[in-house]
Design a protein around this nucleic acid. Structure first.
Lengths: 200, 200, 200, 200
DNA sequence: TATGAATGAGCCTTCATTCAT
DNA sequence: GATGAATGAAGGCTCATTCAT
């Protein structure tokens, strides 16, 4: 257990209250007053922990990115010749958010930050690097699949990008409420790179 | 030429100023004062044309949706056995925004509305129906491809959704600045549904 | 029948719409926009008839004062030795507003003007002269009563003032919703000036 | 001495500035900007003390009602057989406002609230209960007078209402500037309930 | 470590009013 | 006789931020 002092504790409470509110009301519509109330402290107290709203937003952003790692969902080393399609499909389902789970909350607030990134290069770069991590992760998975001889993709890079795009956009679509049969779409996507006899 | 009176003219100027500012600063951060200044009128004048900021936002939304039709980009009836893959690929490229073109502006502001839709069911429904229009459009294209015997998809519905997702997310990725080789990704996607001998 | 032209007609419509709204929303909270809407014309049209909101208020005030005459309710010449107490009592009841009658509307809006008169000497003077008309009216009634030998007041002036006060305040109390038994109070007041054997 | 902290101090300053302005300009025409200027603070500071203009108005109302108690002016227990008429007359004079005294200010602003009560049931009820307190107070005074055998009223309840009406309306008339000889009217009223030999 | 008290800038909105047509 | 289009001034209110304590 990492020992934690009072200051750090309050900081984290502020961060998490902020994220909770960002998710529900949007970042711009969440005021420091709302955050303070949620935590149970006063507005100026926030300034003891974060020098401005902007800094708080940035820390919140870091806070969630820490819990948004490709390798937490897609475990390359668990894949093998026998389970490749099945497992990849399953990893995707685990990643895709359900209305109640934590990942749902996480992606919902990530969505808010994505918008903000339009006007903030700092955020944009961080999101780009997350995206790169996903593309790279899928690239490794594809290479494994090729090694195992179960997939048939012509261009690994393009396919890695395609997978990243699809999984990301399915998540977004669920978020926004598009009523697509996302499990089937993901299965179709996985299948599209498997050899005929490996399809799931 | 459609004759247009002064009120309509100013209304459109307001609408377009609003959209320009929404695109650059976000909807919530764009104030009526900014819009008024951009048009060159005073703040209360806006109220002569729109009864509230909310109504103005809604009209802006309608204004852009009018120019965001699947059939403006993807012309099913131009497709045939000979050009199917090539044309579909080309339609996609035309749809995908380039930093300078009008479609870029349009998608960028549409992105702002997407965020807003998280907290506004009216907008959400409209965006869902746009999404549905795209899925349905791709469905018709796929059926044509099947008719012509050039594609090999197992499940038309899933593939239509997949295409809609991919094209939408490529657009978004360009917007956000993800540095992917989107032409190649789109080509890969189109190819993934063509029969071997038809690939482009 | 007095012939009336279109301008006068609209003027009166504006006046009456204004009074209706003043009664319900108060003078200050009634805007020209509301009045225009009530009449079915546009806001600037009001300026064709009245040079400012203030002038409109003033005309409205005159308009109601024209219908608020002591002699319309208290008919001195109908009083005689036999019916004096009874009739005076009855006149009061006729004057006192009931929730549904026209007098109620009239007094309610008069109430609004009374407040305004705190800050407008023009109005104040007019209300004072109405009050004087009432006091003077009651004075004449009392003199008649003395002539007929049915009342016993020591000082006519004081009693006239007292009657004016009581009848005015009963009206106000009804307006405001004070739950007093106003008929009995008025009867008591009338009785207090009658000789013992004349009491009603 | 009651110790008072800074918040309470400013709150009271705001309250009293508000009442001063309400009295002179009316409640609706008094803006928060005016109040802030009068106190010497900024507009948003008011919101630290009162959550809205409405709440400020309500607190102002409570503030004045606290100083408007029947028993502060009419001391029943000081009345006895010998001084009854004289004292009751005197209490009334003390209650009736003179242009310069505090009671004048108080009743003037109370008048503004009366108007507001037309459209606010909360205020209406409070004013009604004040009125009831006065009627009840006079009732007790009358009962005392009967006990002492100095008055001759037939119906105590009606007379109590009459007294409340008269004293209230004299106050209002002074306020509005009606030029009546209010001392005489009040004396007449008091006399009208005394037995012949007790008259003042 | 946090709060009490306050502030400047800015928000959306409403108002009475104007004036060319 | 009335309207269309616009405006300056002002309304109540919220915001991120400050700073002495």
């Amino acid at each position: 257990m990492i020992p934690i002092n009072k200051k750090e504790l309050t900081s984290i409470q502020i961060l998490e209250a902020a994220l909770r509110l960002f998710k529900n009301y949007g970042i711009e519509k969440t005021s420091l007053a709302m955050i303070a109330k949620e935590v149970g402290i006063t507005k100026p107290s926030i300034y003891y922990h974060f020098s401005s709203k902007e800094e708080l937003i940035e820390h919140s952003f870091n806070h969630i990115l820490r819990n948004y790692k490709f390798s937490d969902f897609f475990h390359v080393n668990e894949l093998n010749k026998e389970n490749f399609g099945e497992k990849l499909y399953q990893f995707g389902l685990d990643f895709l958010p359900t209305t109640e789970d934590d990942n749902y909350e996480l992606i919902k607030v990530l969505n808010e930050f994505t918008l903000l990134s339009n006007r903030n290069n700092n955020f944009k770069q961080r999101l780009v690097s997350v995206q790169f991590e996903f593309i790279n992760g899928f690239r490794n998975i594809l290479l494994k699949g090729i090694d195992e001889g179960v997939i048939k993709v012509s261009n690994v890079d393009n396919y890695a990008q395609l997978l990243a795009l699809v999984i990301d956009n399915i998540a977004r679509s669920i978020m926004i409420g598009f009523n697509i049969d996302y499990k089937e779409v993901w299965k179709e996507t996985v299948n599209s790179l498997l050899k005929e006899e490996e399809k799931i």
